[in-house]
Design a protein around this nucleic acid. Sequence first.
DNA 1: CAGTATCCTCCTAGATACTG
DNA 2: CAGTATCTAGGAGGATACTG
Lengths: 115, 115
Amino acid sequence: MPDFVSDKHLFHNPVEFAMSKIGGMYKMPILWRLKDKTWRYSELAHNIPHISDRMLSKSLKELLNDGFISKEIFPEVPLRTEYTITERGNKAVTIITALRNYGFELMNDFGIKEK
Amino acid sequence: MPDFVSDKHLFHNPVEFAMSKIGGMYKMPILWRLKDKTWRYSELAHNIPHISDRMLSKSLKELLNDGFISKEIFPEVPLRTEYTITERGNKAVTIITALRNYGFELMNDFGIKEK
DNA sequence: CAGTATCCTCCTAGATACTG
DNA sequence: CAGTATCTAGGAGGATACTG
């Protein structure tokens, strides 16, 4: 697996590339919530623990630019925007599900009990 | 999914926990190489692109402490150490394989051609 | 409501040098 | 050969304030 460049950034393997697209603190939590319904900005903001407006808007923008989600703006008063997962996003959810299941296994393996 | 603490570090979801164990730049590349045979330190050092001694030794130590690999020291001259994957490491390889396949799909999806 | 702009902190990884 | 120690840089994410 040789190095390759995408979007002016150097990658060494496919996992690194995938993580550059759906990694970080909040992208998976966002995609996970969008997997079976449309959410509006404020719903995500209130539902994802600890997320700030800065990180939410930054993450949404990147997921949007990379085609994992789509956005619809309703020019009402007050303003409403809705985020929906795309086909590319749905494929991501498959691996997120696997990662999540593995994470639970590992937590159990390490004796961490969830409520 | 409530927050939880492990090893004095705060986590928000199972994916974050999994990534704290097998994430970072080099842990997956190491586990990937150990999946079907034992490697010695210098073989890993020469085979994993761009890795420094510092990062190799640091990553190996953490994988060892977390039970993903085991280590055997042969007190010969010159010194020889061999690293072998454990059952826990093999489970990790399953998800790494899935992530890797997803990464290849995504690269293809984004028009990145590998050689 | 749905964001953006600025500034700042911490942590991962790189560079370099050294050792049993 | 198989590492460890020290120092540094870059980038992800936090805090806070502001806006169409």
